[in-house]
Design a protein around this nucleic acid. Structure first.
Lengths: 345, 345
DNA sequence: GAAACGCTTGGAAACGTTTCCATAATATTA
DNA sequence: TAATATTATGGAAACGTTTCCAAGCGTTTC
């Protein structure tokens, strides 16, 4: 096959020629510059339409201007969790005619934060960081560089930077309180990765609720996980093996809750009659699982959308102050929680 | 805050200067060009490391060369289905030092295929098209342009083009046969969007199995859906309302199967005792749902990985013939299917 | 020992934009 | 009506690379 050229390689030059104006004018039309006469604008626009002109974004980006692409740095794509956030980001981006460039860091060594920051430079106008493991590495560099970014689901340690998160503490507090009011006194807790702010906040919320309701905190009831399903299974098993096992288990996210459910069922116990189980996140399958999982809803998609809005705001309006917002979490009661039955002995 | 420059804006020029060579030489070092003396190469490389040089990809792309970014065109991010594929793509891409640019078409009008093709040009070295609604629009343009691409889960209508899919027909055939062997005679079928090849193939597989086993095809038992959950509910309801309702329902994907499950339960019927249900895809939540869903596993992640490999192959080796591969599907029997109970009258 | 060759390197053009500066044309003011 | 302010446009430099061409230089070959 003869090697034809990609669709039609029409550049600003051809447009200018055909419209009988200079390059500068065509560029100005494209960028909605004020200083161009209405009829000129119309004529040029017509030619552009007619020739099917599409700006070459490489060239545009090269000359130090915006690329209309924003970058998303995500740990990986394995969990539905990231997918939900991405969905929100994508939706909002669509509204503003931006495109999305996705970088996953799962393969990138920790120390490469600088490399990433460099790499990304020039390719994207701004960066959305989802749940970075080592946020300080990034935030320092990016702040210094005055490069627009927003943190998602992480309240960057130390220095103030734009971020959107959820009320993790409050959500965990409310959920724990709900279990207590149901009558549970021994409530197991499976934590997330404790290097993540969200995990810490959830644990704190749990502890605070116990304290307020005068239930002594039992270290045995706290199992340290890392947000993955196997931890839920392991944690559930460990908790049930206790001499005085909990009547309810609160996992720091839904997939661990599902792991714990398997552990419970594996021991021939019923959910929720024998053991109540409660999650965090409200990922889509939580409603589908049987019994449907009671959980703390985190507005993931909304978080994605909001962060995107904030970033675009920053882009349009560089001198704005930095925002940090926390979206409310919400307890979703389904079928996996119940009052504990009276236990003899 | 003083506006510092992004990390350190070190260009090829500075590197050349510091290393005491010309621009061309530095470029040659970066691109592993043969014609550069070992010691020169070493010296330049050292300087690059030392200065933390990272190539500006815009500039590189501009001069007609590769960008090391590949584009993914996906309908949307709403379903876990796409997520799985993306996961595979991302994994493979990581191995080859490529980055990923994601374009979602849900917002883009059908007719804009040309626009997209143009837009993408220059930004990415190749394109992965996931389940395009109107593949012909793209494939024609891209083929003409000699632009590398691979279709995922769509056997591009008409002209031959690189594609990876799954054995949809065989999967549906096997699943239907399995139900028949269980003793089912009236098997309801909920189709996907019939403008998609995969949906057509699945329906055909179902029909063929019936035919081979001498079960008459009943148009009433076929409900046309569009791959979304509400269709599953509606389809399930419609099928159960038949005078002679099916004892098993086979949905063209898992989310519709779950919709159908709700419809079944809503009528007070039990799964699988009263009605068996079978899905397609094996998305993660299928194993989690209760009862766990019997389904036809599509190796989504693997498809993503393979397509990516094929694309990278094409990039490195432009004159290769075009490959089309179908990955095998596999029936996963779980708890949602059972022999029909004997029905009196 | 000279010619031819091959390898390494420097230099410069080119990629398609944006943006700044200058100039021409037009409108406003005194 | 002349002087001035304003607006519309053209021209050219700049962005950071790649790549082509040619030149330098050391080796081989006759």
């Amino acid at each position: 096959m003869a090697k034809k050229d990609v669709p039609s390689k029409v550049t600003i030059v051809e447009v200018a020629e055909k419209a009988g104006v200079s390059l500068g004018t065509v560029s100005r039309v494209m960028n909605n510059d004020i200083h161009v006469a209405p009829d000129t604008r119309e004529r040029v626009a017509a030619v552009m339409r007619e020739m099917g002109y599409v700006a070459n974004r490489q060239a545009r980006g090269l000359k130090g201007s915006r690329t209309n692409v924003i970058g998303v740095l995500a740990p990986d794509l394995g969990t539905g969790y990231i997918g939900e956030i991405l969905h929100g980001i994508d939706t909002e981006l669509g509204l503003h005619q931006f495109d999305l460039m996705l970088f996953t860091t799962h393969r990138t060594a920790i120390k490469e934060a600088n490399y990433v920051a460099n790499l990304v430079k020039g390719m994207v106008d701004g960066l959305l960081l989802i749940l970075p493991r080592n946020p300080a590495d990034y935030t320092g560099i990016l702040t210094n560089a005055n490069f627009p970014f927003v943190l998602i689901d992480h309240q960057g340690t130390g220095s103030l930077c734009p971020a959107v998160g959820a009320t993790n503490w409050q959500g965990a507090y409310n959920a724990t309180e709900y279990l207590i009011k149901l009558g549970h006194k021994r409530i197991g807790f499976i934590t997330g990765s404790m290097d993540l702010g969200a995990a810490i906040d959830r644990l704190d919320g749990y502890k605070s609720a116990l304290q307020v309701h005068h239930i002594p905190e039992d270290p045995q009831l706290i199992y340290e996980g890392t947000f993955f399903q196997p931890d839920g299974y392991a944690g559930g098993s460990a908790l049930l093996d206790l001499d005085d096992p909990p009547t309810a288990i609160f996992a720091s996210n839904d997939v661990m809750a599902m792991g714990a459910m398997d552990a419970i069922r594996g021991r021939g116990l019923r959910i929720p009659e024998d053991v109540s189980i409660l999650g965090f996140d409200d990922i889509p399958q939580s409603a589908m699982v049987r019994p449907a999982l009671t959980t703390v809803r985190q507005p993931l998609e909304h978080m994605g959308r909001l962060a995107t809005q904030m970033l675009i705001d920053q882009l349009k309006n560089p001198e704005k102050g930095i925002d940090r917002v926390e979206l409310p979490t919400q307890l979703i009661v389904r079928d996996s929680t119940l009052s504990p039955k009276d236990r003899a002995g």
